[in-house]
Structures are given as C-alpha cells and as structure tokens.
Write a protein that binds this DNA or RNA. Structure first.
Lengths: 168, 168
DNA sequence: AGCAGGTATTACACCGGTAAACGATTTGAC
DNA sequence: GTCAAATCGTTTACCGGTGTAATACCTGCT
C-alpha cells in the first residue's frame, strides 16, 4: 500500500502540529484532489470536440431529460448561475448545437432544445467519455468501485441535505 | 436509503439510452458533485477571514512544511500555475501575511515565509476549518468514514500515477 | 563572451459569479 | 376594469481569479 499526496500532507501537519485532528482531510482533501485531477484530464475526449466540461454538462442535461428546458431549469440542473448558462447557450447556439424558442404564453421564458447535430454530438461523445472514465477507474476492482460509489452516495445525500437546502 | 442527485441522473440516462454503461458516473459524478458542494460551503470559516480557499492552501503549504518555499515549489505544492501563485503572493504580502526574501546565491529565486500574523492566522483558522469539516462529515459513522477515506486513497494513488505523471 | 536552461513575473484572454437592468406577468387597490 | 407595484425569468455589465504564453532576468557551461 503506497500512500497518496494527502497522506503525506497529513503527516506534515502532524509533525508540525501534533495535536491536530486531521481526520476530515483524509476525506475532503482527497475528494478535492481527485476532482482536480479528474477535471484536468477527464475532459480529453471533450476538448477534442471543442467542448468545455460545463458545456457538455449543459448539452447532457437537455439530452437526458428528453424535453425542452428553460435557462432557469438548466441553471438549477447544472448547478451554475443563470448568467453562466446564458453565455454557454449563446456559444452553443452559435455552433448550432442548441436552439432557443420563445414561449407563446409567457414571453419571459425561453425553451432550449438540441439541434440534430447537438444531439448527435452528445450521443457520440458520451460513450467515449464513459469509456475514458472507465479506464481511469480500472485500477479498482469491482467490489471496491461499488463500495466507493455507495459511500460517496451516502456522503452526497448528507451534503445535499445540509448544504443543498441552504442553496438558493 | 434515499438516493442522491447522481442516482436520478443515471436513471434519466438509462431511460433515454438503455444500453449505456453509466457505471463511471456513479463514482466520478459523485466526486465532482461532492467537491462542488464542499467548495461552496466549506470555505465559510475562511471567507470570514477574508481568505480564498486557494490563498489558505498556499499559507497552509508554507506552514506545514515549516520552512521557506520558493514560488515554484508553492506552485507544485498547491497544484496551480506559477502565475496564480505570483498574484496570490502579492495579495498576501500586501496584507502582511507572507514575506518575500531574495536568494543570495541565485538571484532568480525568491523565498517565501509566513509573517507572525500569517502564522497566527493559519493556526487560528485551521482548527476552525477542520471542526467545520468534521461537522459536515458527521452524518457518516466512523467505520464508514474510514472505509471512504481508504477507497479514496486507492483511487487517488491510481489517478496520481496515471495523470500526475503526465503533469509537467 | 555567448548560449542553453531555469525561475519568476507580466500581458492577455477566458470563464464564472454577483448584481443591476430589462421586459413580461401577476397581484392588489381603487 | 385599470393602473401601479411587486414579482419573475432572462440577459447584460462588471469584476475577480486562473491559465497560457510571452517576457525579463539569472546562472552555469562551453
């Protein structure tokens, strides 16, 4: 069992400040570090298609709900600000991947849907992306992956309850 | 067992595209989501001290290594670009939390150390931060936390080997 | 001296968030 | 019924933070 960066950081803290309860770092530090490493590399298949992770998330949200979404819904779905969604929509629209359509009843709201190219792009990219992710996770055996997924789900439920409630 | 956001996203994908192997999402999606939620809220104690997470990481790196570090070392230690470190150092120096000292031998390199206030600030903030993080993790029992930490460590080792090697 | 390699900083551009602005709709008082 | 005010969804304006790439500077070797 070799140790990771977080383990050595924790060891440094213990040396310098022996009383410290560094327990939380072992989880939160690792989650942050994993997320950082993943985001740096994970997007390789996306980048080759000229897409940001955030843009892909947006396209994916429209694709998987299989209906038109409003910018507001997209903002909630992708956990980003309305302004960010607006900008991404403009960029994606300029590339003819999404279309805007004004609501007939309420002219404040817009409806966003994928163009055929947008849909085709997502359907081509997502399997590539998942295959890449699968290769990244290949170092863990199946029981380990299940265990990890289930623990993360537990944690995520906690976080959503505690923090997601305070959101918005 | 209630399910989290990732579970419902996976379900949506399965509805729309039944053949898809969504396994990787169960881990990577959750890690990203946890990291996002944590970073939004986790920094509460820091923000009250007027510090960014990145700035705190930088101060922490100097504190825990217990010696002067060069900007380059700090960039590697905090996994950010040299330019970002330069700017953060300027900001922290303006607030008298760190000091720069030029090397006598090699006048390219600088050495960064904490001022007394900087050191005091870290030593005051870190326990607060850890206490806050502990409260966030309180929903998991101790065996669950250990299990999670250990699985994350496994994954992190894999990622560092696979991706960290490609870094620089 | 000149050149190759290394360190830190600066210049520039992108991306995201907050807050203000804008247009549209609903509510409520008269 | 109508007007004014509050509310809502979206967009725009602005700002801060980060990365890449160009720059300045230094060292050590030939």
């Amino acid at each position: 069992m070799t140790d990771d960066i977080v383990a050595s950081v924790v060891r440094q803290w213990q040396t310098v400040n022996p009383g410290l309860d560094t327990g939380p770092m072992e989880i939160i530090g690792r989650i942050n570090r994993c997320a950082a490493l993943l985001q740096q590399a994970e997007d390789a298949p996306l980048r080759s298609a000229g897409l940001t992770r955030a843009e892909f998330d947006l396209l994916g949200a429209v694709r998987r709900t299989d209906r038109e979404l409003t910018p507001g819904e997209l903002a909630r779905e992708t956990f980003s600000s309305g302004a960010a969604v607006t900008k991404r929509l403009r960029a994606l629209q300029d590339r003819a991947l999404v279309e805007r359509r004004g609501d007939d009843r309420d002219r404040r709201v817009a409806h966003v849907r994928l163009t055929d190219e947008g849909r085709a792009l997502v359907d081509r990219l997502l399997p590539e992306q998942l295959a890449y992710e699968r290769s990244v996770l290949a170092g863990l055996d199946q029981p380990g992956r299940d265990e990890l997924a289930s623990r993360l789900s537990e944690l995520l439920v906690q976080l959503e309850g505690r923090l997601g409630g305070a959101r918005r």
